[in-house]
Measured scan of single mutants.
Amino acid sequence: KNAAKIVNEALNQGITLFVSDNKLKYKTNRDSIPSELLEEWKQHKQELIDFLTQLES
């Protein structure tokens, strides 16, 4: 999976991924984040940080 797909899947579940101080963060109104999503974010962390940083610049 690529970073764009992961970010879109998160958005579809009401979760916004973003970068703050070079760290991957998220915002959501959900009570909890599915563990498989958290695991996927960890596996692709640097790719996600790079992707989101490019989007914001």
Rank of each mutant, 00 (worst) to 15 (best):
N2F: 08
E40P: 02
K23L: 12
K42Q: 14
N22D: 08
T53R: 12
K27F: 10
S57E: 12
A10Y: 02
T53D: 05
D50K: 08
E36W: 09
Q46F: 08
Q13A: 12
T53F: 06
Q54C: 11
S32T: 13
N2V: 12
L17T: 00
Q54L: 11
A4M: 09
L37Q: 04
V7G: 00
T16W: 13
Q13E: 08
T16E: 14
A4P: 06
I33Q: 02
K42H: 12
K27P: 01
K1D: 08
S35H: 13
A3D: 01
K5R: 15
L52Y: 02
D50M: 08
S32L: 07
L11Q: 08
L11P: 00
L24K: 00
L52C: 02
E36I: 08
Q54Y: 10
E56Q: 15
K5S: 13
A3P: 12
S35R: 11
L52D: 00
L55I: 10
E36N: 09
L17E: 01
T16S: 06
W41Y: 04
L52A: 00
A4Q: 12
F51D: 00
A4I: 07
F18H: 06
Q46C: 08
G14N: 05
E39V: 07
F18Q: 05
D50R: 08
K42R: 15
Q13Y: 13
E56N: 13
P34Q: 04
E40T: 12
F51A: 02
F51Q: 02
N29L: 11
F18E: 05
I15Y: 09
V19Y: 05
S35L: 14
Q54P: 06
L48I: 14
K1C: 13
Q46W: 07
Q54T: 09
I33W: 03
N8G: 09
N22Y: 06
V19H: 02
N2W: 09
S20H: 14
I15C: 04
I49K: 04
V19D: 01
K27W: 08
D50T: 10
K27Y: 10
K5P: 02
L48E: 00
Q46D: 12
P34E: 05
L55P: 09
H44T: 03
D21M: 06
R30I: 07
T53P: 02
Q13W: 14
W41N: 00
I33D: 02
L24M: 03
L48S: 00
L52E: 00
P34G: 04
Q13R: 09
N12D: 11
D31A: 13
Q43G: 06
K1H: 11
N2G: 11
R30Y: 05
H44C: 06
F18Y: 15
F18S: 06
W41V: 05
K1W: 08
